[in-house]
Design a protein around this nucleic acid. Sequence first.
DNA 1: CTGAAAGCGCTTACAG
DNA 2: CTGAAAGCGCTTACAG
Lengths: 330, 330
Amino acid sequence: MSVATVSRALNGSAAVTARTRERVQRAAARLRYVPLGAARSLVTRRTQAIGALLPDLFGEFFSELIRGIDVAARARGLHLLVSSSHGDADEAAAALRAMQGRVDGVLIMSPHVDAGFLKRHLSDSLPAVLMNSAAGGRRFARLNIDNHGGAFAMTRHLLACGHRDLAFITGPECNYDASERHRGFREAVAAARGATSRVLQGDFNEESGYRAGRALLAAKKRPDAVFAANDMMAIGCLSAFNEARVRVPGDIALAGFDDIPIARFMHPPLTTVWVRIADLGQAALERLVAQMDAPDAPPAGVTTLPCEVVVRASCGSSGRHTADRDRAQP
Amino acid sequence: MSVATVSRALNGSAAVTARTRERVQRAAARLRYVPLGAARSLVTRRTQAIGALLPDLFGEFFSELIRGIDVAARARGLHLLVSSSHGDADEAAAALRAMQGRVDGVLIMSPHVDAGFLKRHLSDSLPAVLMNSAAGGRRFARLNIDNHGGAFAMTRHLLACGHRDLAFITGPECNYDASERHRGFREAVAAARGATSRVLQGDFNEESGYRAGRALLAAKKRPDAVFAANDMMAIGCLSAFNEARVRVPGDIALAGFDDIPIARFMHPPLTTVWVRIADLGQAALERLVAQMDAPDAPPAGVTTLPCEVVVRASCGSSGRHTADRDRAQP
DNA sequence: CTGAAAGCGCTTACAG
DNA sequence: CTGAAAGCGCTTACAG
């Protein structure tokens, strides 16, 4: 039996008798034969792998995101190559270059990425989808969370609860999500009469939220409500308040962003903006696959995934309420 | 200039003049040429990639673990292929088979894996390292957390705090970490005079901890202390206690396991067992690389990483204390 | 130090 | 339906 026949049998070609296919499969199973990916890729020009370039892996946000990508990738028989934790643009560039020629497409989420960066480091022929990125232009498909809308809605919610003196804990500078969330906050405050606000710098980690919380407690006048640009910082901030016996929401209201799985288990359960993180990963992968299948199709443009305010106990009452414990796990 | 020379220049072969190398590199940069991984792999028999087979990706444990693996892999120029979320042994087997021929080695952490499974689905020639696995035998290197020792030490700590009526929330059945932690608890209780215990079934997710907490509150007699087999469940349990206005540690002490980054930000901060999760991933990768470099070396045996009880506020005082807020982030 | 040539293990027209 | 043969893009002895 020739290698050609074996190849056809294993790859499900129609031009093989059932008997032959079966014999081949049996033998392959017995010998635990697995075709060498490299050889196959060399001739098919497909690696059956996609790459994910991520900024970092701290916290539940990224485990959710990777999970969404992984599930969608496996459903399509694609392998997932991850690369993360690059502190600067050079490391991100190296990671991106190293992926080239090893993957059929890349998913990119990185604060260091802008149009020029991509032009320099990304082959024109490699399909790519940007997640939560300011850059993109016409060349790249983009998938964004509605950071601005979510932050705007949450700020409106805080105002509707009667809070007037608001504080915002920002994410890292130059981070697109962070700046969009900040913008949503700013605009909602500007549109409200009699509302004042202050801003504290954070970096999306718990520790920076904790520090911001301490700083707010030390201020001459404490705010009515604190809106942290993500849940991790809100949790850090909550920890500072709890430590100081400042009651939430009795003394200060507190809100986050992302609705990471743990948010509902806080004390008090955290009011936050629900982002379907895993869905973002999944949608991004599917967008990428579409691009890989039709490389000459027109660029896909920007898709924005909606967010939703999830009202729990940390902001005081506002009339509305969500029976959250009953909501299915994402 | 021949392709051979280009290849040598790009791969750092000594047999090339500096001038030639420079010309090649300049041209490669200008054309954004990246050697095709598949072709290179085919001839070198190295993919420069390693695979990580993980059971799931929920929560901070896995984001920490992947981070540790990723950092160590990048330091060695290796790509990281992840595969997770397989609900049963068949899916895990498919994932493992699909990786074969695409990676130079695999890191395996999966509750579905035992000696027979590995024998059936893993090529003899593929280096592999098992993390937190009961299986292994002589064929595989293993890297385990000292689950038993950590749980034993934590239970001793609870007893030293004066608690006598203990409850344990277990992890999923058939999970090695879970059963080892349970064993540590059981043995420490058995060795203590006058101590009683009860066990509640959990599955390592917050929700199951929450349910266990509710069940404990509904019991005729509440325990003095609850030891959850991981932090996620402890957090869920804490949420149930907080909701019911049961004070921790005033009314019931509570301890977890893993010391995920968020544990210290709970209210009260969670006493738990510190596991250097990222270090586990990193150590496993280094063990794997050693095996890849010396495939004929004798199998490495079992390494057990120590754990450490981190005393925070959730279990009441015991004399000892850890200045935890000051501990450097891992 | 450089080049010509073989060969890695597959897939896929092309014959038969 | 099956097989012989070319070729994918690299690396690496082997000559020169």
